[in-house]
C-alpha cells in the first residue's frame, strides 16, 4: 500500500521539486551570501536579513502591502457576499450572469492593468473626464492618494466576482429546510442571516479571505502597469519593491533575503488568518 501511495504522489513531488523546492533552496542559499553576478559569492550568514529589516524602503513597502490587503478585504468580502445574496438562485439568468462575473477573472492580469491605465490616464482615459464633470480633480499619475485608491478600486473591480462566485456556491449548498424552519420560528430577515446564512457560509468565507489575502499580498502586474510604484514610491507594493531589487539590483544575495522575508510574511499571515477564522466560527 505504501508503494501505491508513493507511485501516485511521485509525479506531483517531481513537479513541485522543479518548480518549488529546488528554487526555494537556491533562494535560501543565495540569501546567506553576498552575490554579484559574475563574482564569487561570500558567505555572510544572516546579515542580509538584518539589513533588510532595517531598510526603510523595505519596511515602508511592507506597511503599504498590509494596508492594501486590509483595505481590499474590508471592501471585497462584504460586497461579494452582498452580491451573492442578491443573485437569483434559479432561472435562466444564471448562465449569463455567471459568465459576466467570470469575465474580469479571466482577463490576463496585466491586461487588467492596461484596461485601467487606459481608463484612468489623464490624456486618454474616461475616468478623469467623468470626475471633472462631477466637479473633482483627478490625476492618477500625479496625486499619490488618487493612485493608491485607483489601485484599490481596480482590485475590487477585478476580484469581487471571485468572492461573489464562492459565496454564491456556498449559498446554494444550504438546504432550504433551514430557511423553512426559520420562517416557522418567526425569525426576521436579519436573524435568519445571522443564525443560518452566515454560520453556514463560514467555510466558503474562509476560503475567500485566504485566497484574496494570498493573492493580494503578491499582487504585481496590475499596479505595476498602472503606476509602476508611483508617483514616487507611494504605491510601491512589496512585489514591485522585490522585483526591482531582483531585476535591477546587483546584489542577488540581498534580494534573495528580501524575497524570503516576503514569503515568510505571507505564510504567517495566512496561518494567522486561518486560525482566527476557524476559531471565530466556534464562538
Amino acid at each position: 500500500m505504501k508503494n501505491k501511495v508513493l507511485v501516485l504522489l511521485l509525479p506531483s513531488l517531481l513537479l513541485m521539486s522543479i518548480s518549488a523546492f529546488v528554487p526555494l533552496m537556491t533562494v535560501l542559499n543565495y540569501s546567506l551570501h553576498v552575490l554579484f553576478s559574475g563574482s564569487i559569492p561570500k558567505y555572510i550568514g544572516l546579515e542580509n536579513y538584518v539589513n533588510a529589516l532595517k531598510d526603510p524602503a523595505f519596511l515602508s513597502s511592507m506597511g503599504k502591502q498590509f494596508l492594501f490587503c486590509l483595505e481590499i478585504l474590508l471592501i471585497e468580502i462584504p460586497m461579494g457576499l452582498a452580491l451573492a445574496l442578491l443573485l437569483p438562485k434559479r432561472g435562466i439568468m444564471i448562465g449569463p450572469i455567471l459568465v459576466l462575473l467570470g469575465i474580469p477573472l479571466l482577463i490576463p492580469w496585466n491586461v487588467v492593468g492596461i484596461i485601467w491605465r487606459v481608463f484612468a490616464r489623464e490624456d486618454i482615459g474616461a475616468l478623469p473626464v467623468i470626475f471633472s464633470k462631477l466637479g473633482f480633480f483627478y490625476n492618477v499619475s500625479k496625486v499619490p492618494a488618487h493612485a493608491w485608491w485607483t489601485i484599490v478600486i481596480m482590485d475590487v473591480w477585478h476580484w469581487t466576482p471571485l468572492v461573489t462566485l464562492l459565496c454564491y456556491a456556498g449559498l446554494q449548498a444550504i438546504p432550504q429546510e433551514f430557511y423553512q424552519a426559520a420562517r416557522v420560528d418567526s425569525a426576521s430577515k436579519i436573524a435568519t442571516f445571522r443564525y443560518i446564512t452566515l454560520p453556514k457560509l463560514k467555510y466558503v468565507l474562509i476560503i475567500a479571505v485566504l485566497l484574496r489575502c494570498m493573492d493580494a499580498f503578491k499582487i504585481y502586474d496590475e499596479p505595476f502597469i498602472l503606476t509602476a510604484g508611483g508617483p514616487g514610491t507611494s504605491t510601491e507594493l512589496l512585489s514591485i519593491f522585490t522585483s526591482r531589487q531582483v531585476i535591477g539590483g546587483f546584489n542577488m544575495g540581498y534580494s534573495s533575503a528580501v524575497s524570503l522575508i516576503y514569503f515568510i510574511v505571507v505564510l504567517l499571515l495566512c496561518y494567522i488568518l486561518y486560525t482566527v477564522m476557524t476559531k471565530i466560527g466556534e464562538h
Binding site: P175, E177, F178, Q180, A181, V184, Y195, I196, L198, P199, G281, H283
Partner: peptide, 15 residues
C-alpha cells in the same frame, strides 16, 4: 403557528 421536523435535524448550530 406550527412546528416542523425535517428529515435531518434542523437546528441552529451557532446557538
Amino acid at each position: 403557528n406550527i412546528g416542523m421536523l425535517f428529515q435531518f435535524p434542523v437546528v441552529y448550530d451557532s446557538m
